[in-house]
Design a protein around this nucleic acid. Structure first.
Length: 489
DNA sequence: TGAAATGTTGGGGCG
DNA sequence: ACGCCCCAACATTTC
């Protein structure tokens, strides 16, 4: 006679603290079988990319260890269909209930709805919870009941809502079932690359919720105060680097919210924390999920529909120079090499590199979104979509298309001492600061003194920014309506 | 969460 | 002393 068992289906909530689905399972007193199902085909066009898979492998290992320390186990299954895998597991365990934390990507929403109905039809109680967002997307709306399309009023509205609930700590023990079901080994999921290119990722990151908590604590102590000034400087460690941990749910936004509040209040700062630039970044994350939820086509298509007719050039050789970090613009190349090596790119650098791809190379923003999707450890459909539509100027609250970043000026402004470009583009290390962001303009004797021969050690610019900018503006005018087009409903 | 082009102002050189 | 021009510095407009 099997005792009551609940499946806790882990997805992008790979943590034990602040996990409402897990808490709900424990509350009932039932035995708990934690499970992760690897079913990438179900994710459609947005199955995890190579860098994400590397992260996921290690994150699952950490979660398994955390569970083992609490007398439990993580059951791993690799199947084409989550439903079949979970129904089979429920049968094996005699489970009568399954719980999970919600996801908000269009394909995941559709899949989860089908699953919920199928579980209920099979006599299995299915309940879902919110672990990933401060506020559910359908609860945030303008006075007229419409979704927000501009960040500032969106976030102002969120800040006016009651605080999200305080997160619960991790349980100290999980009731085990009488017998553990069979489990795939992490290696069996095939997440790790066949040839080991992940050395740079290993050096840069420690997946898992313990590391995430460590990063958050260190950031609050050392980075929070100066975040407003430091966050835009890619040559410094001014950001929290929590993005991949957030994507995989190793830490939740509510934990960050309340940890920030506590940090500020313990130091007698009762006013600034809610309105801080740091929490506003959580706001952008919320806004991204809000937009993807309300505009589910936006991962594939420009929100401003005029942009569907934009005359992209899509030159494969130029796109290749971009992915390889060989455009001849140091800050763009530094950004792309940081991404390739570490699976991450500083936010300011994302804007500069993104603007360059879309506006200087006239490549369709979806090409950039695809590359980031495969190479970023924090690749997130909502965030990636918002970021690329923002940079291309075709999204909600986006940078106007005519706002074109000048790589040399951005470099001078945000990497004035050249620390960032020198770290990732060592060819130009010996150029003085004055020329380090525009080696093409350096006098011959300066290049010679720096031991740099353009076209030999480091490429000449693949396009002339000045010319490219004008070409981009001309391309824009070709799709411009008499009245600027608003976002599509 | 831009940058370039264009306009305005005011100091200073100079005839 | 005066007008003219140049141009830097700043502001505004435009892309």
């Amino acid at each position: 006679m099997p005792c009551m068992t609940t499946l806790v289906w882990f997805r992008q909530d790979l943590r034990l603290a602040d996990n409402p689905a897990l808490a709900a399972a424990l509350e009932s007193g039932a035995a708990v079988v934690p499970v992760y199902v690897h079913a990438p085909i179900e994710e459609g066009a947005w199955a995890p990319g190579a860098a994400s898979r590397w992260w996921l492998h290690h994150s699952l290992e950490r979660l398994g260890e955390d569970l083992a320390r609490r007398g439990s186990r993580l059951t791993l299954r690799a199947e084409p269909q989550s439903l079949a895998a979970l129904l089979a597991l429920a049968r094996e365990c005699g489970a009568v209930r399954i719980v999970w934390n919600r996801r908000y990507e269009p394909a995941a929403i559709a899949r989860d709805q089908d699953l919920k109905a199928a579980f209920r039809a099979a006599g299995i109680q299915a309940d879902s919870y919110n672990s990933a967002l401060l506020h559910e997307p359908w609860t945030v709306q303008t006075r007229t009941g419409a979704p927000f399309q501009v960040f500032t009023p969106f976030w102002r509205h969120c800040l006016s809502l009651p605080d999200p609930p305080e997160p619960q700590g991790a349980p100290s023990a999980l009731p085990a079932p009488p017998r553990w079901p069979a489990s795939e080994r992490p290696e069996g999921l095939g997440l790790l690359p066949r040839i080991d290119w992940a050395g740079g990722l290993r050096d840069a990151w420690t997946p898992g919720s313990a590391a995430a908590q460590g990063l958050l604590g260190r950031f609050l102590e050392e980075g929070f105060e100066a975040y407003g000034e430091q966050r835009d400087l890619p040559g410094t460690q001014g950001t929290s680097r929590l993005s991949p941990h957030l994507h995989f749910g190793e830490i939740g936004p509510r934990e960050i919210w309340h940890a920030t509040r506590r940090y500020a209040q313990e130091r007698g700062r009762h006013t600034s924390w809610r309105g801080s630039k740091f929490l506003a970044e959580l706001g952008w994350r919320e806004f991204a999920h809000h937009l993807l939820y309300h505009f589910p086509q936006s991962a594939e298509r420009p929100l401003r529909e005029k942009f569907a007719a934009f005359p992209w050039k899509n030159d494969p050789a130029l796109a290749r120079s971009w992915t390889r970090g060989a455009t001849g613009y140091p800050i763009v190349d530094a950004a792309m090499r940081e991404l390739w090596r570490t699976g991450w790119m500083h936010n300011r650098a994302r804007m500069i590199a993104g603007s360059f791809l879309v506006k200087d190379l006239l490549a369709d923003w979806t090409q950039g979104a695809r590359w980031f999707w495969d190479t970023l450890v924090d690749a997130d459909l909502a965030g990636n979509t918002l970021g690329w539509q923002w940079v291309a100027g075709c999204g909600a609250d986006a940078a106007p298309y005519f706002r074109v970043f000048n790589p040399a000026l951005q470099g001078a402004k945000f990497d004035p001492d050249g620390a960032y470009v020198r770290r990732w583009v060592p060819e130009i290390t010996r150029l003085p600061n004055e020329w380090v962001h525009r080696p093409w303009a350096a006098p011959a004797q300066v290049l010679a003194a720096a031991g740099l021969s353009l076209g030999e050690h480091y490429p000449r610019p693949v396009v002339d920014h000045d010319v490219a900018r004008r070409e981009a503006l001309r391309a824009l005018s070709s799709i411009k309506a008499r009245h600027p087009a608003g976002p599509r409903r």
